[in-house]
Amino acid sequence: MSDTAAAHEAPTSTGIDHKKLIMWLFLASDCMFFGTLISTHLLYRKLFPAGFTDAEGHQRFIQDLFSIELTSFSTFILLMSSFLMALAVSAMHKGQIKSFRRNVLGVIIFGLIFLGCQVFEFTHFYHKGLTIQNSVLGSTFYVLTGTHGTHVAIGVLWLILLYFYSFTGKLGGHMGALDVEVAGLYWHFVDIVWIIIFTAVYLVEYLGPYGIWGSGLPAVVK
């Protein structure tokens, strides 16, 4: 199916396939989307650097909440999933369907691990008292990271569909490689956005007066 359609498709004016161009345009749009969410979070962090007040009325600090080890681990996993995605795209270009399946399965598993970490993190933070209702920090944090998690989940779903589709034998040739490459573009983008979120939302918190070079958290919190 794909090959016959490709054979009749006129060459594009720019030489870039339509699907790939549309994915790039979508990613440009998505940049603005995440840009707005990240800006909202950072603006409120600047306004309320102290964190939030939990259900018992105690002042809590974000550094007290975060488990930087866990988030670093899930960030590493997502980074490695991007590496596997690149291998999957490369395999598809060479027509090595089995290698493609192996690598894409790896991406799916790594994506699921990342999502698992996020679910764990959300429940953990919730039990420590950060909710979407009790503070601006809770609102911006959950909506920003939750939106990113939704992007990862959609990506995982997409790759699962591609994985099973590859068994029908219809995923092949130039159009098949293009389909995989477009999914890959999306996946890499979601990964890059996470690197930015990890830096701007997590790592930067450790540079302030309560971070690693500061005097540490005030005693009342500990």
Binding site: S29, D30, M32, F33, G35, T36, L37, T40, I132, Q133, S135, V136, G138, S139, V143, T147
Partner: peptide, 19 residues
């Protein structure tokens, strides 16, 4: 995307008690 995010935030405020 800016209005999309603004509307999502407004929706969270109205429906889920965000701030």
């Amino acid at each position: 995307p800016a209005i999309t995010v603004a509307l999502i935030e407004l929706m969270f405020d109205r429906s889920f008690g965000a701030n």
